[in-house]
Structures are given as C-alpha cells and as structure tokens.
C-alpha cells in the first residue's frame, strides 16, 4: 500500500471556514477527546478539501492537455471531471464493462471515485484530515513529530485573526464619474471590514495520503502525477481565500516519480478521442 506522509508549514495565514458570526468568518475545528478524557476543539483542514484539490488539479490538466474547446462539454461532464459526478438514473445492473473501460481510458476516475448513471464506484485514494501539530493532537501524531517544538503548545497559540477591507466607491472619483455620465445611479456597494479567524503562519499541519490495496499500478503513478501538479515545487495553497494570499504552505514529503506526469500527459494525448468519448458516454 502506498502511503504519503505530509508535513505542511504555513507561510501565510490559513482560513478554512465554518460559517460566520457577524462579520467574522469562523475557523473550522474538530471536536476531539484527549486521552485523559478532556475535550477540545482544534482547527484542522479537512481531508475532503485536500482530496478535491487533487481532483481539481487533474481535471484542469486534462482539459488543457486535450485542448477542450470552451462550451463543448455538458454540465454533467464538467461535474464528473471536477466533482466526481452524480447518480442520474436508477437501475440494479452494475456496468462492469464500463468500469473496465474507465480504468483503461481515464483511470483518474478510478483513483478518485465517481458516480455516473446508476453506478457509484469507490476510489482507491484516501486523504486524511490535516491536523495541527499541537499539544491536544500529540497523542495521534506520528512518532517523527513527537519531539516537535509545537507539540508542547496548545492549539490556541496558533490561532489568530486577520481582516480585509471591501471599499465603497460612493463619494469617490468613480462615483463622480458615473454621475457626470448622466446616469442616476446610486452605487450599491457597501464599505465593509471583514474578519477571518486563521491559523498563524508558522503553524505546522500533518496528514497522509494513501491508496487501498485495490489500487492499480496506474493509480499509483497517477497519484504521483497529481501530487506534482498540486505541489510540484513543494508549496501548496490550501483552504479558503487563496486568491488573496491565504493558505500558502511549504510541504515536506511530496514524492516525486520521474516521468509520472509526462506519462500521464502522453496517455491523455494518445487517447484524446477515447477520453472525451468516455466522458460523454458516462454522462449521457
């Protein structure tokens, strides 16, 4: 079984949201029970979120490699590539031939799992939650992190708050320009300061990515290719607000398999028509 053990060190604040209170976006936490029975709520990044990033990276790479024309895919096809698809019909027959065709033609779906027509196929990829290296999580961290300096410090030490500003154009040159154009327009924007609960830069997260024993050799190589797409330079952008610089981290433990990404790209290029036809057939 392949297991990739990742350690991430934040280089910018991280926000993984869980609703809001007033103007403050709250940080997502996991309720945990400590070995002595005490309980705590500790910030984390969900495995579901990281798993989606791998799917997202492979999807964008696929459409770029196949030179998919804008407007040429159905919504169901986009949903299959980026979100794993959905059950769209009923039936009690499992299409084994289609499952084999998926593995031969576009094994990314077999790696990540997918739903199409009346079938749901489990993927062989498992992504753990990313846990903060802190005192509350000490009991479940791997041995190699047992001596980390952060293990003696409570999670609260790593939490912080950031803010952003949304500017209002009322009473600004932009507003005056609109008025001189003769339009009776009242700008509908509102000046706002919003707050975000964050994990501070320097916080360390740990998690693992693994494959089940049913993973094919192709799934293994594809996982390396996906990791190269996502964090090939050993940096990653995690969770929310990445467009404005949040969630940057350096990653230790990203595996590199020479040629894995090139092989996958070549496979897509060589089988472009078959891949597109398969996606069409799965989502018709």
């Amino acid at each position: 079984m392949t297991t990739i053990d990742l350690t991430l060190t934040l280089t910018s604040p991280l926000h993984h949201g869980s609703g809001s209170a007033g103007n403050t976006s709250l940080l997502r936490t996991q309720d945990i029970v400590l070995p002595d029975g005490r309980q705590a709520a500790v910030p984390f990044v969900s495995g579901n979120s990281l798993r989606h990033q791998l799917r997202d990276a492979l999807a964008w790479h696929t459409v770029a490699t196949l030179a998919v024309e804008p407007g040429s895919l159905s919504k169901a096809a986009v949903d299959l590539l980026w979100s794993g698809g959905a059950i769209t019909s009923t039936g009690s027959q499992v299409d084994l031939a289609m499952a084999r065709r998926v593995e031969e033609t576009y094994p990314a779906l077999g790696l990540l799992g997918y739903a199409a027509q009346s079938d749901m196929t489990a993927g062989t990829l498992r992504v753990s939650n990313l846990h903060l290296v802190c005192a509350e999580n000490a009991w479940r961290l791997p041995d190699r992190l047992a001596g980390h300096n952060h293990v003696s410090r409570p999670a609260g030490m790593f939490r912080g708050e950031e803010f952003g500003t949304r500017h209002d154009v009322a009473s600004t040159p932009v507003d005056r320009l609109v008025q001189t154009a003769g339009e009776i327009v009242q700008p509908g924007t509102t000046q706002m300061i919003y707050d975000l609960q964050v994990l501070k830069p320097g916080s360390v997260l740990w998690g693992e990515i693994s494959l089940t024993p049913a993973a094919t050799e192709q799934h293994g190589r594809l996982l390396y290719a996906a990791m190269e797409l996502l964090a090939g330079d050993c940096t990653i952008a995690l969770a929310a607000k990445t467009a404005v610089g949040y969630g940057r981290a350096t990653v230790d433990g990203v595996p590199y398999l020479e040629g894995a990404l090139d092989e996958w790209t070549q496979h897509l290029t060589d089988n472009a028509d078959d891949v597109l036809q398969l996606i069409k057939d799965l989502t018709k």
Binding site: V63, P70, G71, L73, K75, A77, D79, S83
Partner: peptide, 14 residues
C-alpha cells in the same frame, strides 16, 4: 462534508 459545484469550470466548458 461539502460538495461545491465546479461553476468556474462549467462557465468555461459548458
């Protein structure tokens, strides 16, 4: 568990 529709990709490719 959240499942966010890929609306950015839909806007481009659908």
């Amino acid at each position: 568990l959240r499942r966010k529709p890929a609306t950015a990709a839909m806007a481009r490719y659908a």
